[in-house]
Design a protein around this nucleic acid. Sequence first.
DNA 1: CAATCGATTGGCT
DNA 2: GCCAATCGATTGC
Length: 212
Amino acid sequence: MYFYQDPHLTTSEIAEQLLGYALVHQSDEGTTAGWIVEVEAYLGAEDQAAHTYQHHRTPRVEAMYQAPGHFYIYQLRGHHLINFVTQPVGIGQGVLIRAIEPFQGLGLMQRRRRGQSGYNLTNGPGKMTQAMGIDRQYYGQSVHGDKLYVDFTQKRIPQQITATPRIGIPNSGAWRDKLLRFIVAGNPYVSHRRGPIDPNHGWTDGSKSPPK
DNA sequence: CAATCGATTGGCT
DNA sequence: GCCAATCGATTGC
């Protein structure tokens, strides 16, 4: 029983709790991994910014209606974006994973990112999937897959979580301004970052590069 | 540093 | 054809 399967938790609560877990991809080219530092909640039928708004149902979004703990992946302007399905079958809510702080496979990430380095490796949903080599082959797959998975055996604890409006959804009425984006405050890999970088990158433990 | 614009890919109308 | 939960370069304050 994983925490995200608790039917009492809202998608926003699950989004916040996903911060600090590691996303891992063991590909043929090598292993890449990083701590989740930025997420957005998409609240389904009510949410004008969600692909499942008004229960919109097409082959593309079908994975969003699966059981919690599956990936919904889609392509936007040539970039892959990855979501974590959060609610029971048929509801259609999920969490967009927008950024990670990488701790494994930095060299491979840099190659996949065509020479980009530093924060630009993974500080955005399209950059992150490119750096990790994530594509549609994982569409509808479990978040406990053999190659691509979220590692729930360890977690870093954010010092502070900040909630902001979501990025890139200008014409979604009242839903544009809702505080559904959650970031690890002070972490440099957060996209569109404002404000100071924390010396510990916003984690409660001191080590910037923890074990594993 | 913030705003703007063009590129570019697959899925839907 | 049309559109998009983006990126990266460029422009302007």
